[in-house]
Simulated assay, not measured.
Amino acid sequence: MPSATEGRETGTGRRGRAPWLVRRWPTMLGVATGAYIVSDMTEGSEAALVLVVAALGYIATAVLDRQGLIWAVVAAEMVAVVVLRVVDVDPVPVLAVVAVALALLGAVRHRWGPSRFERLYPWFTALFLVAGLVGAYADPVLAATIVGTALIGHAVWDAVHWHEDAVVSRAFAEWCGTLDLLLGVGVLVIVLG
């Protein structure tokens, strides 16, 4: 029979669980955020904005070349979304144009190379932007199917960022990946259910 000390050392005792939960705070936050967004959806296409925000946030952080800034970048995007909605402007095309401008700035600054990961960066950004734009304006069923699938794809992209410890902080990649996966599955359940 293992002692209480052994349980704590291996993480199986009561005290051993708290540090795991503390380390997985981005996952817990992603689950909470995703559950909240899914609970408020009616068609699923509403999640298109999440794709555009993610694409812009990642490309902006890549151009700035500062992993830790991603939280501030996304916070600024959320403020911009609120302001744009208050003045009755659709935030999706505005954020998409900013993302394209930043991708071009990254090209001018020679940010997209030499690694394969960096060379692919603007192309993946474009893919998620197009999915977000189609998802925002297409027929609801088609839009939600594209958005749900693209969100799951972005969760994979988040996992690559987490594994490579590149562009965004690992905590953000973990949070975003959890959110994207939950949201993508939720959107597809709404559409196909």
Rank of each mutant, 00 (worst) to 15 (best):
M1G: 03
P2Q: 12
T10C: 00
T12L: 02
T12Y: 09
R17A: 14
A18S: 07
P19H: 08
V22Q: 13
R23H: 05
P26W: 03
M28Q: 09
L29T: 10
A32H: 02
A32P: 00
T33R: 09
Y36L: 14
I37T: 13
S39T: 08
S39M: 04
S39H: 14
D40L: 12
M41E: 01
G44R: 01
S45T: 06
A47V: 08
A48I: 08
L49T: 07
L49Y: 04
V50R: 07
V52N: 11
V52K: 07
V53L: 05
A55S: 10
A55W: 01
L56P: 06
L56F: 07
G57F: 05
I59Y: 06
A62M: 12
V63G: 06
G68L: 13
W71C: 02
A72C: 03
V73S: 07
V73C: 09
E77P: 09
M78H: 05
M78Y: 15
A80M: 14
V81H: 12
V81S: 11
V81Q: 02
V81R: 09
V82N: 01
V82R: 14
V82C: 01
V83Q: 01
V83N: 06
L84V: 03
R85P: 02
P91Q: 01
V92C: 09
V94G: 09
A96R: 00
A96E: 01
V98L: 15
V100P: 10
A101D: 03
L102G: 09
A103D: 10
L104K: 03
L104C: 13
L104R: 02
L104D: 10
L104H: 00
L105N: 07
L105K: 12
L105C: 13
R109T: 13
H110A: 10
R111P: 13
S115N: 04
F117G: 02
E118I: 00
R119Y: 05
L120P: 04
P122G: 04
T125Q: 05
F128I: 09
F128R: 11
F128K: 13
V130T: 12
G132P: 00
V134Y: 07
Y137L: 10
A138H: 00
D139Y: 02
D139P: 04
P140C: 04
V141D: 13
A143N: 11
A144P: 07
T145C: 00
I152D: 02
I152L: 08
V156L: 05
V156K: 01
W157E: 10
W157P: 12
A159Q: 07
A159P: 06
V160Y: 04
H163E: 08
H163Q: 15
E164S: 14
D165L: 05
A166N: 10
V168H: 06
V168Q: 11
S169P: 07
A173F: 06
E174W: 06
W175N: 05
C176V: 02
G177P: 05
G177Y: 05
V185Q: 00
G186V: 03
V187M: 00
L188K: 00
G193Q: 02
G193V: 05
